[in-house]
Design a protein around this nucleic acid. Structure first.
Lengths: 140, 140
DNA sequence: TATTAAATGTTATATTATTACATAAAAAAA
DNA sequence: TTTTTTTATGTAATAATATAACATTTAATA
């Protein structure tokens, strides 16, 4: 979704510090075809930074998650660059069980469904995560 | 949802072996007010079984998950008894950020949404997990 | 320039989960 | 019933995922 230059700009505008570990971690995640795990990020980070430790990777991951540039795919313990802008409160992922590809999808009906539970006052939804497993059209 | 006697019956009907660790783990999860973590299950299991090890808990968890009597709440790494029968392919959870209570909800519109992606052939959904964070009516 | 705030480096450790292999129990076959 | 096979468990070890704590460095700001 975002090119690096855009991200640099957004960070500047918001005065978010774009440090080397952060930038490298974002690049690693962005360049990964499929969601990538923290320790695989860490391994790749070792090509850029001398002997990085887990907190270095996790802190950068946390930073990009907080600002909604990456998502955590909960059922995979893995991270993927956001492909739909970084301001939504919910996300939907189509996870191919065969090739492992994860498509971020914006199914706009989801918020409608959540509104119902708000209307009947049983629950006040703030954010959500939908992970759908199945087969992508390449694999089915 | 299910009482123990029902579960015993279902297991018998299906020739699923209802061993002691399985039964105790199910009881522990069922009696837990909120989703319970594997190592907390293990701790409680120690009251029933002599010095249980992680695989004992995880195997039982896996067994009940496979047969849809319990769910894993992915964002919490925790397990909760299924409250909607055990034959659905998708589940929705309303997670209260304040008290930690998780309500299993059947929002029947979800399948409709998934059908769309089937119809346009971009993805063939097989199962899904929706985790919604917010505030329950007790806490808001 | 001095001070403060934010980020990183580093060590250690906590948490979550699985592998591997020996043993036991139950089911199925002979 | 006895043997064989399958399924489950016990146990030790370790893998995979994530965080705490504290010293140091870097950047922002006063």
């Amino acid at each position: 979704m975002f090119k690096e230059e855009q991200i640099i700009k957004i960070c500047k505008q918001n005065k978010w510090r774009l440090t080397e570990p952060r930038l490298e971690v974002l690049r690693i995640i962005s360049l990964s075809k499929n969601p990538i795990k923290a320790y695989d990020i860490l391994k790749k980070l070792a090509n850029k930074i001398k002997n990085p430790k887990p907190p270095t990777a996790y802190r950068a991951i946390q930073f990009w998650q907080k600002h909604k540039f990456i998502h955590r795919i909960e059922s995979l313990n893995a991270y993927q660059a956001c492909s739909h802008g970084h301001s939504h409160v919910g996300a939907q992922f189509l996870i191919c069980d065969d090739c492992g590809k994860v498509i971020e999808s914006n199914l706009h009906e989801i918020p409608e469904i959540l509104k119902k539970s708000t209307e009947n006052k049983t629950f006040k939804p703030l954010r959500w995560n939908l992970e759908i497993n199945g087969l992508c059209n390449q694999c089915s």
